[in-house]
Design a protein around this nucleic acid. Sequence first.
DNA 1: CATATTTGACGACAAGCGTCATCAGAAATA
DNA 2: TATTTCTGATGACGCTTGTCGTCAAATATG
Lengths: 224, 224
Amino acid sequence: MRMAAPKSATADTGRTYGGESAAARQERQRRQFLDAGLTLFGTVGYRATTVRMLCKEAGLIDRYFYKNFQDTEDLLAAIHGASMDHIEAQVLAAIAATTTRTPDAIVAAGLDAFFAAVEDARMTRVCWLEVLGVSPRIQTLYTQRIQRFARLLLDVAQQLQPRWPLDDEEADITTIALVGAISQSAMHWLLTDYHAARATLVSANARLLRGLVGALGEESADRR
Amino acid sequence: MRMAAPKSATADTGRTYGGESAAARQERQRRQFLDAGLTLFGTVGYRATTVRMLCKEAGLIDRYFYKNFQDTEDLLAAIHGASMDHIEAQVLAAIAATTTRTPDAIVAAGLDAFFAAVEDARMTRVCWLEVLGVSPRIQTLYTQRIQRFARLLLDVAQQLQPRWPLDDEEADITTIALVGAISQSAMHWLLTDYHAARATLVSANARLLRGLVGALGEESADRR
DNA sequence: CATATTTGACGACAAGCGTCATCAGAAATA
DNA sequence: TATTTCTGATGACGCTTGTCGTCAAATATG
């Protein structure tokens, strides 16, 4: 009587195959589905994408899809998170690499890195178009990411101009609005096939930030 | 041999029923489905809404749905258009009704009317969350509406401050960004259950506009 | 070489959906 | 009153989708 037990090969158990360990295989399969999802969600759209399509695009079968993700919504969440992580990292790296550390230069560097990142149409479409209206769970993830970006913006802004004569609530709304301005610019850029020059988008949004800082400064002066 | 021909009762042909003419009935049925769609799309969401649900909510059967709309996407387009028409009308009416016609007063009146309109959570959700990522056709409608709002904003702004030292492309992007700021504010307000006071949203977005005008003014001055 | 595991191909199944047809009752019309 | 039209209820159909099971080939292991 043999142990005819394939067991639950969930994790590190399992023999090597094709020169890859079980863990390496699982990770590669996961990446393949992430890539396939980014491509399909970013072209035909999330709601038009089926498990079969994902498997065909990834070159794998559904067994390995379900081993890595609960369902397509789970995959969407993973792709959204990874994409936003990537964009944020690009922005932070560009800001950190700024040599002339004037406010305008830092803002320009951050915005330029952002718009350079969203030149990947698939990512932009997934992160700003496809994730909306999917489910409460995805909605929460989207909202948290927007707020995270807003906080990042506030951090940068407060380093440049520490005097915000606003209570927390209005400050939150203001930064959210700024994120919305930048987001809508990116969406519009995508939907017009990236016709405008990236520098134009940077310039327009930098002006918006500069204007806000100016208006806040005047209010501080008035209040004094 | 009778004329057993119900004919295509598409339009004004047909007898009265329940005290309503055929045209009146058709219009009422259409309204019922518009209401049902606004409620369902605005609560459970567009993709979770089926024809059966719409019929149950409207108190009608599917025959009258297909008589008025091609499919649920067609209904979504109609609801989006009507909602945006309504919001725009409210804003224009508020602007027209402004007594003290200073720039700040006009902007405040328009923004206040806008945020008052989006206090209807169903409309806001449909117009800013549910329509995204549905189909190319709906995407086009959304984009056109955003651009229409942007042009409205530009019209108002140019009446207040005619000197825009920007080429057309950058002016377009700037107004789109402003619409994005206002839109994101509205979305965030919705997603936080309208916690903040409406006046706070008006104030934050008015400041953004004021700041932009200030920045543009400085650039004009520099260029001179 | 013999056995166990991994992989891919294929098919099957239930469920949900859009859509249409039928039928009986209500209301209008001649 | 007899006939026609309108309305709602019900069921059926074809299709797609998620999900699971089976089987043979490829690969690893002892």
